[in-house]
Simulated assay, not measured.
Amino acid sequence: MYKTVILYKTPMHTVSLSEFRANASAMLDRVEQGETVRILRHGKPVAELVPVQPAAPEKLPSWKRPIHPLEYQRADGKSLAQLIMDERESARY
């Protein structure tokens, strides 16, 4: 009945807004390495940059899922690509 939740503790780096503006690229590098960056304005936290968690494939919308080519084999052993090439070669034009 109870759901187990596992929280992962990541290192956190706290910076002021002016420091973040001056070193935005370095802060993003820290986030890429797995750290969380907390941004302060006038000493109060206003934002946190956290690493992106990859979504599970079943939670991705259908238009973002990878497309796998259709594998269709005819009884005579020819692929659909071969049938198209044969049709083009035998065309009258």
Rank of each mutant, 00 (worst) to 15 (best):
M1Q: 00
Y2W: 06
K3Q: 05
K3H: 13
T4M: 08
V5E: 12
V5I: 13
I6V: 03
I6Q: 08
L7V: 07
L7N: 14
L7R: 13
Y8F: 15
K9D: 09
K9F: 08
T10G: 09
P11H: 09
P11W: 12
M12Y: 09
T14A: 15
T14Q: 08
V15Y: 07
S18P: 00
E19F: 14
E19P: 00
A22H: 11
N23V: 15
N23F: 01
A24V: 15
A24C: 00
M27E: 04
M27K: 04
M27D: 03
L28E: 08
D29Y: 03
R30D: 12
R30G: 05
V31H: 03
Q33D: 11
G34S: 12
G34I: 02
E35P: 00
E35N: 05
E35K: 00
T36L: 02
T36E: 13
R38K: 13
R38H: 08
I39C: 11
R41P: 02
H42W: 10
H42I: 01
G43D: 14
K44E: 08
K44M: 09
P45E: 13
P45K: 02
P45N: 12
V46E: 12
V46M: 04
V46W: 01
V46I: 15
V46K: 02
A47F: 12
L49W: 06
L49H: 14
P51M: 12
V52N: 05
Q53W: 03
P54C: 11
P54K: 15
A55F: 05
A55H: 02
P57D: 05
P57E: 06
E58G: 00
K59P: 01
L60V: 06
L60G: 14
S62Q: 08
W63Y: 10
K64A: 12
R65D: 10
R65N: 02
P66W: 01
H68G: 07
H68I: 04
H68Q: 10
L70W: 02
Y72N: 10
Q73M: 02
R74D: 00
A75Y: 02
A75N: 02
A75K: 14
D76V: 00
G77A: 11
K78R: 13
S79C: 03
S79T: 14
L80K: 03
A81D: 06
A81C: 11
A81E: 03
A81F: 06
A81I: 01
Q82H: 00
M85G: 10
D86V: 02
D86Q: 13
E89I: 00
S90N: 02
S90F: 01
R92E: 10
R92M: 03
Y93E: 12
